[in-house]
Amino acid sequence: MSAIVFTLRHEPPERLDLSRLVPDVLVELTKSEIEKIEIGTTKYGSRVGDIFRVKGNNAANVVFEAGSARFDGVGTGMTSGEVRVAGEVGAQTGRLMRGGSLLIEGDAGPFAASCMSGGRLEVRGNAGDRLGGPLAGEMAGMKGGVVIIRGRAGERAANRMRRGLIAVGKGSGDYAGSRMIAGTLVVLGKAGAMPGYLMRRGTIVLGKTPTELSPGFVETGAPEIAFSGLLDRWLVDEGILDKPLLGRAPRRWGGDNAVLGLGEVFVKG
């Protein structure tokens, strides 16, 4: 058995909805059925076969040999197996993902890991706005799993996150961790303005002291705690950090006092 490989025939003429090209769905289908899946989102009406050459038969391992910013919904709802994109993807990659592993070797668009509840998403490049966040109307964002962005994240990373961990390597836009319900967001590099705005609970770990915190956050000093060591150790073991970040006595702010005030922002002490 060899991986199912999708080779792009040409740059797609429209945004593509690739949400069905995941192991859980493909395992049920023959090659010709796969080629007939409708993936267009406009009047072009593209099907898989129009856009991709398809080969291979092991649905547990899905590879897109090239990427495109028009690939939306890659890895949607997957529960197991591996999906890899050798390039960039569009919106909502890893949306509602429950298990398995998804690797994006290029950049990802907005709403990556939207409402994900399990599994592991790694983006080698940058991620767009609202990483892990809910779509319009939904009440909670990411609910579990691990997301690693090696590059930068856009605005409002971890918006309304409820559980799980997001680690961003090279900084983020404004309002990181907005409205977090719980969970953990780690941003190395520089985070934009007012991280944690409207957060109820949860943990934001920053690589650099924030330039602008909302007045809803009040500094709680730098007592020695065990949790920072626990988190550091896990991040290093997972290959997310090269060396411990927070140490034993990180600086801490409690907030957002505008709401529940049970969240926190950590920076190395």
Binding site: D17, G73, L135, A136, G137, E138
Partner: peptide, 10 residues
């Protein structure tokens, strides 16, 4: 309630 509408989904 846009999320309650079927068309909200792909």
């Amino acid at each position: 309630l846009p999320e309650s509408h079927r068309a909200h989904m792909p």
